[in-house]
Design a protein around this nucleic acid. Sequence first.
RNA 1: GGCGCUAUCGUCUAAGGGUUAGGACGGAGCCCUCUCAAGGCUCAAAUACGGGUUCGAAUCCCGUUAGCGCUACCA
Length: 475
Amino acid sequence: MTRVRFAPSPTGYLHIGGARTFIFNWLHARHQGGVVVLRIDDTDVERNTQTSLDSIYEGLQWLELGWDEFYRQSERLDLHRQAAWAIFEKGLAYRDFTPASATPENPTEGWLFNPGMRELSREESDRRADAGEPFVLRFRVPRDSRPEVVVTDLVYGVVSKATGDLEDFALLRSTGMPTYHMASCADDADLRITDILRGQEHLANTFKHVLIFEALGVEVPRMAHLPLLMAPDGAKLSKRVHGPVVSVTTYRDAGFLPHAFINFLSLVGWSPKNDREKLSRDELVELFSLDGINRSNATINFTDEEPFDPKALWLNAEHLRALDIDDLARQLVPYAHEAGFTNATPEKLRAIAPLIRERIRLLSEVGTVADFFFVEPKGYDPAELIPKKGDAAMAAEALRKSKEVLSTVPAFDHATLDEALRAAAEELSIKAGQMFQPIRVAVCGRKNSPPLFETLEVLGRDTVLTRLDFALGIV
RNA sequence: GGCGCUAUCGUCUAAGGGUUAGGACGGAGCCCUCUCAAGGCUCAAAUACGGGUUCGAAUCCCGUUAGCGCUACCA
């Protein structure tokens, strides 16, 4: 049984890199019919915050992928400590009494261990510990008996590191708290994690982890490291320097569909190798394979002006267009309210949805694309009313004529409107387009809009006539 | 500095010894059209650099350069 885990630490917001790691884990597990474990790696008490934890839940819940088991490392500290001391008992770890301030002597030089501590006798070590002297528990890297540590990564292939280049890393801090390496491996072993998919920044840590797993006497899980997500400036994505664009909730708030967002992220660093781009969640589960994962970092393409990767936008638009009208209308409701359209009822949105479905890339764009369905367009420049190759007089004439026609037309539907308005244009000896533009601007407040007749139909005769009057007054 | 990893159009990627180096987004143009979209068609756009190996290299090897990561009692 495949068991994977996603192990965020609540020291920051859930950003899209973390989300992608979760997605890949989820996809991998579901593809194999396995189990997804969510584990909060909160052993760094100093930096943990509740808001980070909330942000992680919020982001993860929005993805609608779910998980099967849940753990918090802070509730499993005894397990981690027991594991660490088991390693110590086997002689594979030792107490280091060097004060913390003295350890990082010179970070630019290869530090391996603090002098004198490795070879402390068990008796002396116990004695000093009993006397209350603080210490960290360090792993005793077997540099003499073993030339290198070899890992076969499912993405990066065989990678190895000389033990002579591996420092004696800490297992337990002087506070007794486990380090990330210790807690992570003890938990992975205890939770019987079979496949570890995580960011490539952990590739170098993997050698240490292999040593820990071996010391624990457990099988080393399969490893698959994922290429990192970078910002266009070449730096790793970070909330501090790149702003809210890296936060999952930003995508949610802008009106991404969760499965479109998942679709986008799944395609960065991974390829189904069949030129497919728009993929449903089920298709992703079926197609997902570690073979398709890349080894090089990928850049998310955003700018200050456009915070979302154009491809993410396009994919979202694709998924939006694939939604059925009722579903789309339902999803639009909160965004219409957010835009300030207090009169945006589900019924009205249901009527508008077909008109904007192919014109929005984000659900929030209902606010800019469909505004005139909810508020009177009055701020436009009267010059906009003037049709191409026409003048103000032509605009006024077209407006007057359309008012006359629209107030008497027998039905207010597409076919009737189409026929009546075209006939009116002919009567005035102007082109249909010259007839339509003043109406469009009067009714929508701008030159770009959904198709005119459908728009008029949704707006209704009274509203349309009122707006034509207003336009006539300013033209 | 040491160690590890990586390098194909602007971006995401396919091709893993033999292809006119393919697709997608974005860009440009044309068509469709009541505007805007959507849709259709077309075009521009890449194997980091230098050496090998080979009949043949984007692909294998070495070097250079660049980027990223690790080098903590952070994760």
